Simulated scan of single mutants.
Amino acid sequence: MTGLRVSELAGLARADIRLGIGAHVNCLGKGRKQRIIPLTSTTVAVVSAWLTEHCGLPTDPLFPTRHGTPMSRDAIEPRLTKHAA
């Protein structure tokens, strides 16, 4: 995903992801502004696999901790750094 702030990524719920034609992420951005960020085909494939492997309700966090709560910004940043390298 491109264009998301880490705090926006942490706050995403499963229902915020739209896959298929015109795939995008719908999030509440800085200043409580509604933002829509398009997804690349590679990101769609990865997120689709993730959602298939990790079942949940639409209101559940997209990237939960093992306790089912949203990951914190501090937990996400090292993972992004590791996998972006």
Rank of each mutant, 00 (worst) to 15 (best):
L9A: 15
L9I: 15
A10S: 15
A10L: 09
G11T: 09
G11A: 15
G11R: 12
L12I: 09
A15F: 04
A15D: 14
D16N: 15
D16I: 13
I17P: 04
I17R: 12
I17L: 15
I17M: 14
R18Q: 15
R18C: 14
L19A: 09
L19M: 10
L19G: 08
L19F: 10
L19R: 05
G20A: 13
G20R: 06
G20K: 09
I21F: 11
I21G: 10
G22N: 11
G22Q: 07
A23H: 03
N26H: 12
N26D: 15
N26C: 10
C27Y: 02
C27S: 12
C27H: 04
C27I: 02
L28A: 09
L28D: 09
G29V: 11
G29D: 07
K30E: 03
G31E: 11
G31A: 11
R32N: 14
K33W: 05
K33I: 03
Q34N: 13
I36Y: 10
I36A: 08
I37L: 12
P38D: 08
P38M: 05
L39H: 07
S41H: 08
T42V: 14
T42N: 12
T43E: 14
V44T: 14
V44H: 04
V44E: 14
A45I: 05
V46S: 09
V46D: 07
V47H: 07
S48N: 11
S48A: 15
S48R: 12
S48F: 07
A49G: 07
A49F: 03
A49T: 10
W50Y: 04
W50H: 14
W50T: 04
L51Q: 07
L51I: 05
T52P: 00
T52M: 12
E53V: 02
E53R: 08
C55A: 13
G56L: 07
G56V: 08
G56Q: 01
L57Q: 11
L57R: 14
L57A: 12
P58R: 09
P58K: 09
T59E: 15
D60S: 03
D60E: 05
P61D: 00
P61Q: 01
L62G: 02
F63N: 02
F63T: 01
F63D: 01
F63C: 01
T65S: 11
R66F: 05
R66G: 05
H67L: 14
H67P: 01
G68Y: 01
G68C: 01
G68T: 00
T69Y: 02
T69N: 04
T69C: 00
T69P: 00
M71R: 15
M71T: 02
M71D: 01
S72G: 09
R73G: 00
R73Q: 07
D74M: 04
D74S: 11
D74Y: 06
A75I: 00
A75P: 00
I76K: 08
I76Y: 05
E77N: 06
E77Y: 06
R79S: 04
R79V: 15
